[in-house]
């Protein structure tokens, strides 16, 4: 939309709308603000403190147990999120490209399958998945969870990527193929065109969901040898008994949420664009 002066009534409406939506957002902002307050302010003195952040580097004594530092959990979470995002993007790009551009036997079948799978209630299959992992000797390992996490998300992202491919002119690719490129290099050419909106949106969503994944780790990992921040936090905050106090928990939550928040703010523009251009059935 071109920049233009707003009429007086439009300006007035905009002001009202801003007020209305601010009122709506205020509780959300307040909620998250209190987290910072809890984490950084000493409840006794009211002064700024960093002592709630000890879990970053040292073992803390709380209640009757010791709380190990967050390091390994952080490492696993980062590893998990990065690997899942990378694999998911690559695999779904390849599949989406084939489905959109190539003619092959069984295409219709796979396309229909995709329609069902992209919103299949995969969480209800967890019992079956656990069995499969046990058979493959992959249960209780990060590799197993990574595979499941990728598998659970690729139908959805393949669908999105396929729609983006559908919207890209074939000319670039065709001229490339005429020049004697292989399919793979043609694929790369198209991918570059895609990079901006579609790829951004699937990788962002993939990363966000991988970062906060809890249920897969809770069900498919049997000991605390492979902690991620989600299970680490959960084990310290059972509903009937908080093992850490809320101040420390808030500090941990900030360490957990801040990276995604920053990542989200940076990527937010790309995300919105991706939604507008390829908004078909995200």
């Amino acid at each position: 939309m071109a920049k233009k002066m707003l009429s007086r009534s439009e300006a007035k409406n905009q002001r009202r709308a801003v007020i209305a939506i601010t009122l709506f957002c205020l509780p959300i902002v307040a909620l998250y603000f209190t987290f910072f307050h809890l984490a950084f302010i000493d409840p006794d003195t009211g002064a700024l403190t960093l002592r709630n952040f000890q879990f970053l580097y040292t073992t803390m004594d709380k209640k009757l147990t010791q709380i190990s530092p967050i390091g390994p959990a952080m490492k696993n979470t980062v590893l998990f999120s990065v690997v899942v995002t990378a694999c998911e993007v690559v695999i779904s790009c390849m599949a989406g490209y084939a489905l959109s551009r190539l003619r092959f036997t069984g295409r219709k079948v796979i396309q229909n399958m995709l329609l069902v799978l992209r919103m299949f209630p995969n969480l209800l299959l967890l019992i079956g998945v656990l069995y499969v992992l046990m058979t493959l000797k992959l249960s209780n390992s990060l590799t197993g969870v990574i595979l499941v996490a990728i598998a659970f998300r690729i139908p959805g992202s393949t669908f999105i990527i396929k729609n983006h491919f559908d919207g890209i002119p074939r000319d670039i690719e065709n001229s490339c193929l005429v020049d004697g490129c292989t399919r793979f290099s043609a694929f790369r050419q198209v991918i570059i065109y895609l990079v901006k909106p579609g790829l951004a949106s699937i990788s962002i969503f993939s990363f966000l969901s991988a970062w906060s994944n809890y249920i897969l780790f809770n069900t498919l990992i049997f000991n605390s040898k492979t902690p991620v921040i989600a299970t680490y936090l959960k084990s310290l905050s059972r509903p009937e008994q908080m093992i850490v106090d809320y101040n420390t928990f808030a500090a941990m939550a900030i360490v957990y949420v801040l990276p995604v928040l920053v990542f989200f703010v940076i990527s937010q523009k790309a995300l919105m664009k991706g939604n507008i251009n390829g908004g078909k059935g995200v």
């Binding site: 249960s139 049997f222 000991n223």
Partner: peptide
């Protein structure tokens, strides 16, 4: 449950 599953997958303590 974890202990039972760990046995099923040969990872038991």
């Amino acid at each position: 449950n974890n202990i039972v599953f760990a046995h099923k997958s040969g990872e038991a303590p």
